[in-house]
Design a protein around this nucleic acid. Structure first.
Lengths: 352, 352
DNA sequence: TTGAAAGCGGTACCAG
DNA sequence: CTGGTACCGCTTTCAA
């Protein structure tokens, strides 16, 4: 079904059909009606490839994420989608599974599709790619990696601040021996969450931190917890790189007969919905996905050029729930710590 | 950056560059090398719109789902993605949020993009649309709706069987008063899970079932549980349309001070990963997302024409975990039921 | 082994 | 208001 067939059947030119389709230019209403009728009869739907080739424009924006199974990424995707849709844009999603080769392929794909803008919510971005992206003329927003340059905007979260709040909170509760659970991509020397945690640790006397890593999944969290416990049997707190892994950790601890928070405290990061629904609910650090989505759309769609080529820094907030409590000498007296569990009302979170 | 610019810079024709790009036809290796070099220098990436317009082909398949936030849909998406990728296809995803208008728009979008095949994992499909889709010449796979016809394959799950297993299991445990928690789209008169549950109920003497509905989210499950409890205070079991809502239900019960399964039994459906990670772990009915993904790819990509235009029926399996136990007269003696909680080993599930 | 040229299905400009 | 037509960037004969 093509424009031309529609035109012929309606006894008009392709130009006229195009005008009707796009609601531009003057068309006599009887003509319009006739064309519309034919379109309906033929169930014609325009070839979008031809359209964007001819028009040179493309109302679609690309979103690349590291792990679509992690609700953190999905939330951002949804936030972008909502605004994009109401501005008449379509989203094209790509998932990299934290793999650099898939990222490269995804970027090429987006460029090949000539997206109007690109958001890369990934942690595995390398600087060559960033350089290359800057070369194409489309607006790009990075989350968490890179620095502003031509056509490129950056959004980053002040992990330092978040981690410091978290660690100092745990320290105050008496925790001195903790394990950081990350996923592989988060344990590279470049990774900010880990680095920042280690930095924070320096400032607290007699605080020691080990690390454990696995995949960024529930199963990964569970395995990492197992590794953490065997590597560091006297730990009193497990600090997780995100909430998904933390839920996996909770599960493993339950299986080991360890109570949270009485025996071990657990913290997440991101503050996804699930953090409120797991048991016990998770102390976490809130990262505002809605706001990230909003900024992305402002840069990519509304093209606030003042917004482009700059850096946004978001300050995360600590959210206290039921998975953290005073440290206890678990090996000695687990019955020591009987204080922490209060089941709060509907919105259980206390913000700090 | 266009083919022509590359051609000019390499001193060859566009036809030759095209041959190099697609690895077809004879090209002298020195020529090939020269072209490749220019492509690299210019960081040329072909305009995919032009390509599929000219070639008439399109190695991409469309996947439409009702609610991408529900891991059930995401699992299918991922299963399809994996196979599609290894066959050199790209996926285009669209999410309808259970809205018919969004479904229509998504289908038009996919048709407009001239996808090679389309999978519709949605429950809100209407028969006009199915008719229309059959008219386009592309292979289509539906999950859960419609019947086979030209170019159309159907996958459906034998919910009847699954629900009957679930209900008879609960009945055996003594439950006589239960509430079915669904999302709005699952409570229409057409919906199979509900209908089948109500049918099953007929066969069990003195079993009564109420219904409650909310959105297909964790929050929705929680609100539905609240509604269920107030509508039917003496319930002993809550049967949920899926695992996500069941996790929401668990949370609300916990807040109400009701123990699962001692006071109330809860069941999910789908058997997503989270069912193993919530607390208590969820008794559920397994729907094999991997197999669904496999069938979709077989029909859409490998185009096993024998597979097309037929119907696949999957038989779901009951998976027992810790969220179900004997019914107890909760209003009378909650301390009655102290039996059910055994924390099992790594894979906690017992299949029936 | 390579190049010239005819489309693919639209858009948009320019006449009429 | 409407039609003719020159592209958009790439694929694919057909000749050379």
């Amino acid at each position: 079904m093509t424009l031309e067939q529609v035109a012929r059947r309606a006894g008009v030119s392709t130009a006229t059909v195009s005008r009707v389709l796009n609601n531009v230019g003057p068309v006599r209403s009887t003509t319009r009606a006739r064309v519309l009728k034919v379109i309906e009869e033929l169930k014609y739907s325009p070839n979008l490839h031809a359209r964007s080739l001819a028009g040179g424009k493309n109302r679609s924006i690309g979103v690349i994420v590291s792990n679509i199974e992690n609700p953190f990424f999905l939330d951002i995707y949804k936030a972008v989608e909502e605004q994009a849709h109401s501005a008449g844009y379509e989203l094209i999603m790509a998932n990299t599974d934290y793999r650099a080769d898939r990222l490269t392929a995804s970027i090429r794909l987006m460029i090949g599709r000539r997206v109007a803008g690109l958001a890369a919510i990934v942690s595995e971005m390398d600087s060559n790619l960033i350089e290359e992206l800057s070369g194409y003329r489309i607006p790009v927003v990075f989350y968490d990696v890179g620095t502003p340059r031509r056509n490129i905007t950056n959004i980053r979260v002040n992990y330092r601040s978040g981690m410091e709040k978290l660690v100092s909170y745990l320290y105050t509760l008496g925790h001195r021996r903790m394990v950081f659970v990350g996923h592989h991509a988060a344990l590279g020397p470049i990774n900010e969450r880990l680095r920042v945690l280690l930095d924070a640790v320096q400032r607290f006397p007699s605080l020691r931190v080990e690390t454990a890593a696995d995949t960024d999944t529930l199963d990964g969290g569970r395995r990492a917890a197992r590794a953490a416990l065997s590597a560091c049997p006297d730990l009193t707190a497990i600090v997780c790189v995100n909430d998904v892994m933390a839920v996996g950790v909770l599960r493993e601890l339950r299986d080991c007969g360890l109570r949270v928070p009485e025996d071990v405290s657990v913290t997440g990061f991101d503050n996804i919905k699930l953090a409120q629904y797991c048991s016990p609910s998770l102390t976490s650090v809130h990262i505002p996905r809605d706001e990230i989505g909003r900024i992305i759309c402002d840069c990519l769609i509304n093209e606030q050029n003042k917004l482009l080529e700059r850096e946004f820094v978001l300050d995360p907030e600590l959210v206290l729930r039921d998975s953290t409590g005073p440290a206890s000498a678990r090996n000695g007296a687990p019955e020591h710590a009987l204080d922490a569990s209060v089941t709060p009302a509907l919105d259980t979170a206390r913000k700090l």
